[in-house]
């Protein structure tokens, strides 16, 4: 058996980096529609600002490093659009633009640009902004409040559901509201039903491998069911933990990024499951209520090691099988 190891994104026939990134763009559009419905035009403006800054920063960094700019490469736009969705709709442009600049100029291009970055740029940018302005990034407006397009936000801000869970309170939400995203949270990461539909689309298009998101959600759900931290039914704990913060968003858009996730199927499964454990631990014991993005970064750092172990284990299994076949014959 011969396994070809290539740099990411690994491609099958008729599937190019461009179509994969195009699929991600298509999958990000419904979230912007939902965010615009809930908060007005401001989320759209934030997304456009972030994508534009990412595109310009990518062009600048490519020119500085002396490469020819590839205008067919949509990955910078994907990074920009996904990055803005993680912020509350009330985030100021300054915060989002700083995060976008960090994502492109620090997390992506010093490591070699598209296809070479060890960390998901959007996750890294969001993590940097979260460390710098925790109060601004983790306080959310109430849905269906119209927000001003620019300047100071007059609307009332509240901590998200993840913060409530951290304090041990049971959120007063019914499951329909939870599924539709009618609760305060990141502007793109609360629409659970829409994100599940996008996940289905991405799975059918084979842009996302099912092992990563399903492993992640299954393990984190199982852990939430086994060790609930709110005085409620274990099933309620599972639903609240999975719907709050950016759990589903991380599972669908962040973790299965073709550049930063493992390339083998066994590795992908292990990666998803370990990501679920890491997200659970970060949310329970970490400094921030919404710790799954930090879990994504941690898992990105482990992706190469997981891949190597899965290659080695595949080799070991093959050898054992050969030995057994010899033994049976003899």
């Amino acid at each position: 058996m011969k396994q070809a190891i290539k740099t990411a994104p690994s491609l099958r026939a008729r599937e190019t980096a461009r179509t994969m990134m195009g699929d991600m763009l298509i999958a990000a559009v419904p979230l912007y529609v939902m965010a615009t419905y809930f908060y007005g035009v401001r989320p759209l403006m934030l997304g456009i600002a972030s994508a534009a800054v990412c595109w310009c920063a990518e062009l600048l960094a490519t020119l500085i490093s002396g490469k020819r700019p590839n205008f067919a490469d949509l990955s910078s736009l994907v990074t920009g659009l996904l990055l803005a969705l993680l912020f509350p709709a009330s985030a100021s442009y300054r915060v989002v633009i700083t995060a976008a600049l960090f994502a492109m100029l620090v997390a992506k291009h010093p490591f070699g640009g598209t296809g070479q970055n060890p960390f998901n740029p959007a996750a890294a940018g969001f993590a940097f902004a979260a460390v710098c302005w925790p109060s601004e990034v983790f306080s959310y407006p109430i849905p269906l409040d119209r927000l001003e397009n620019s300047g100071e936000i007059a609307a009332r801000l509240a901590p998200g559901v993840a913060e409530l869970l951290r304090q041990g309170a049971v959120p007063a939400l019914d499951s329909m509201e939870l599924l539709l995203g009618n609760f305060s949270g990141p502007m793109g990461a609360t629409h659970i039903l829409v994100m599940e539909t996008c996940l289905l689309f991405l799975l059918i298009r084979k842009t996302v491998n099912w092992r990563v998101p399903l492993g992640f959600l299954a393990i984190s759900g199982l852990l939430a069911w086994l060790f609930p931290r709110i005085p409620a039914d274990p099933m309620d704990s599972l639903i609240f933990e999975l719907c709050s913060g950016a759990m589903v968003f991380a599972a669908v858009y962040m973790l299965p990024d073709p550049v930063t996730s493992p390339k083998t199927n066994l590795g992908r499964l292990v990666y998803g499951c370990l990501g679920g454990v890491a997200a659970f631990l970060f949310r329970r014991y970490g400094g921030f209520a919404q710790g799954e993005i930090f879990a994504v970064l941690l898992m990105n750092a482990l992706a190469y090691t997981i891949d190597r172990f899965s290659y080695q284990s595949a080799e070991y299994i093959r050898r054992v099988r050969l030995e057994l076949a010899k033994f049976n014959k003899g």
Binding site: R94, V106, F128, V131
Partner: peptide, 23 residues
């Protein structure tokens, strides 16, 4: 400076600043 990036005080940012200045 218009923005205050308190994330730069964390050790990971030290590595980044060191890398950029070294380059």
């Amino acid at each position: 400076v218009p923005v205050k990036l308190s994330g730069l005080l964390m050790p990971f940012a030290g590595f980044f600043v060191l890398g950029f200045l070294g380059a």
